[in-house]
């Protein structure tokens, strides 16, 4: 299990290649990479603020919950903070399990919880100005699936 909170970019491909390497008891690896999206072509930068004293421990608790619920062989979460440009990776999760259903479900669970329970806040700096991204009701509702 690995949790990394960092401002530096990461190579999702290299991370995935190194993930759960050497494990012969797993049959499924699932990964998700979140990317800075510029829907309207006006985004200059996305600024991600976080709560350094809480971030790693909050994510670790979420990952521990996923590992125990789905008996994961391994799990990885990388989440960046600081200023990011459109197209840059924000975060990734990877899960490894004996079967694909558990790996998919655990990755989905991790994404839902990271969105609403990990202390990050996104601010979009566009041609028109700067605005904090508001949490969506459906993101909170998504937690009830679990």
């Amino acid at each position: 299990m690995q949790v990394r909170v960092q401002s530096e970019p990461f190579d999702a491909g290299a991370e995935l290649n190194g993930f759960a390497q050497g494990r012969t008891d797993i049959g499924a690896v699932v990964s998700f990479t979140g990317v800075v999206r510029d829907t309207d072509g006006t985004l200059q930068e996305m600024l991600i603020e976080h709560y350094p004293g809480m971030t790693t421990s909050a994510i670790t608790k979420i990952v521990e919950e996923a590992v125990s619920r789905w008996t994961l062989a391994d799990a990885l979460v990388i989440h960046r903070h600081g200023p990011l440009k459109p197209g840059e990776p924000i975060m990734m999760v990877a899960t490894a399990a004996a079967h694909r259903a558990a790996a998919f479900a655990a990755a989905d669970f991790l994404m839902d919880y990271l969105k609403s329970r990990a202390p990050f806040w996104k601010k979009e700096i566009t041609d028109q100005g700067a605005d904090w991204v508001a949490a969506k009701d459906e993101d909170e509702d998504a937690l009830n699936r679990w």
Partner: peptide
């Protein structure tokens, strides 16, 4: 010892 106030989180 520490209280923190913030808007709903927007990670991921």
């Amino acid at each position: 010892r520490e209280v923190a106030f913030f808007p709903p989180m927007t990670g991921g």
